[in-house]
Design a protein around this nucleic acid. Sequence first.
DNA 1: ATACCAGTTAACAACGTTGTTTTTAGTAAT
DNA 2: ATTACTAAAAACAACGTTGTTAACTGGTAT
Lengths: 327, 327
Amino acid sequence: MVTIKDIAKAAGVSYSTVSKALRDSPLVKPPTKKKIVNIANELGYQPNVAARSLVSKKSDTVGVVWPTVERAAHAALITKINDQLENHGYTTLLSINKVEAAINTFNRLQVDAILMFNDQGQDGPDTPLPSNVPILSYGIAKNPLYPTVDVNRRDAIKLAVHTLVDIGHKNIAFIGDMSQRDQLQDEKVSGFTEGMKERFQEATADVLIPASGLELYDGYLAMKKFLQAGKTTTAVVSGSYDLTRGVIRALNEYNLSIPKDVSIISYDNIPQTNTFEVPISLVGVPNDVITSTITDALLNMINKKQVPQSIVLEPEIKLNESCLALE
Amino acid sequence: MVTIKDIAKAAGVSYSTVSKALRDSPLVKPPTKKKIVNIANELGYQPNVAARSLVSKKSDTVGVVWPTVERAAHAALITKINDQLENHGYTTLLSINKVEAAINTFNRLQVDAILMFNDQGQDGPDTPLPSNVPILSYGIAKNPLYPTVDVNRRDAIKLAVHTLVDIGHKNIAFIGDMSQRDQLQDEKVSGFTEGMKERFQEATADVLIPASGLELYDGYLAMKKFLQAGKTTTAVVSGSYDLTRGVIRALNEYNLSIPKDVSIISYDNIPQTNTFEVPISLVGVPNDVITSTITDALLNMINKKQVPQSIVLEPEIKLNESCLALE
DNA sequence: ATACCAGTTAACAACGTTGTTTTTAGTAAT
DNA sequence: ATTACTAAAAACAACGTTGTTAACTGGTAT
């Protein structure tokens, strides 16, 4: 392991001069600086984080608590956040340990901030864990233990419903994952129910198409079952992008055209890579809005040393050809 | 941040005594030790890794290079490896940066070992990266730059083919992801081709069912297309668990029974959670064999400071009711 | 009493780095 | 030629920890 002192010896200067030279301090003359930098490169010098963070009390590192790798749901988010933080000089580290252990680890490592993916609050602690490091949570902002970035899924679905009603639809169905108690999915269902209630005074029975998962095949199966039962609808609000893909397959099989026979609005955060014949309308908070919000919040926590408020992101709608006005 | 010195002051002893007490050294009298430990707990003391690893040159941490979070393929592996390392007192950290940056980070962090998930060697460097830390790779052991743990996918499929031939099958098909150049998948295809060639002298045209991915729906679609075209087979070797699920769906739709009409052997590493009516035969290296091998290799690298050889794991077959003998 | 133990604890040095202070050398002003 | 000043570099202290060495204890043997 080559240290700052080896460089000093090789360059014939004191080691503190080397330190300054490598940090590009104006306290060392350009020629000397250049010589030192060259020697450092030549020797393949790598600064020792332990030593550095011992004195600076910083590690330029952000820890991400991610207890459920299996659920690839947030993969896209993490990738982007990782990139954005990198642009600001921070390194991202993931821990797939359970929340408590992960936070502990990150505290020991003297990470500068912690981002916690709070998967449906399933196994979250009910009292804030002791931490010297500021923690930001991504999940549900209802009675959060930590400042939280939340996506208003309920309003997103509601927005979809309202939009469809406003262009003349009356018979609207919602397809979503209802296989398990999952707060995130429940929010969507109740968004649908409330959205309908707000527009139709008399209580209409909600048309719910229950899928048993969030995969393409789940959507395909659920929609097919719906159609097989002879049920019909003029518009479908879908709880996820993959489900939507399944729905489209099923509709195709039944020779139902989009949007002539059925209009579709899909919940989604992914920037649309239009792989469909008919561009699909989307509601949701765009992924880069989410990631920028998170990144900014993290950087604020680190630099301003101030605890940010919880933030609820409101959805946008992007209308496309998949929606047909009915009047 | 409470340090060892704060404890020393509170306990009225020197700080070196505190250090020894907390590390349970025999050099400090039990009563003193107890008192110190109590105070430490009370103050919520957390050792500073930076300081510790500065002097000990260890961090009790293993870094995992995982550039493609999106591909959830290895999630199960990582989870298990994480647990096993934890049992040995090591913390696992993941980096989703690209290989070079990740290795750099881990070097700076003075991680004790690095595990690299070498996704189909797609963007791997072609010359070993400079690293002070031993690196183990999981992927393909063919001309590896680092000691590598490899799974013999080719022989796994071959084993499946041979087994089917030996129980009387002649018309055998292989379904796999042939959508993209992926070394891992290619290995399986050629395992099939070779396996057939070894048993049938005359060159029979291989029956390949090309799927356009590794998801359930891809298998379903590919198999359905195969059947729709009026083709038949008495046995299917499937390249992945999810594909197999899709195949089964398709067979069900065509009222073909397993194993009466079609026998199935599936490639898989996952310990079988029997969700099927008919238990499926499996080939592959069980996941816990893979993870234990990796964990052991990592620990060896750390403790013995010796570079291990590359290891190729040989597959096992687990015959179940999904295979019917034909004579 | 003096010297010599063992058992405890205190003091010290070191790890590699950064920020501050002191020294050195070179130049300008008296 | 002495002083005053400035730029550059060296020396020093500190960060929190661990391993080593030195300094105390009280007791036992001389």
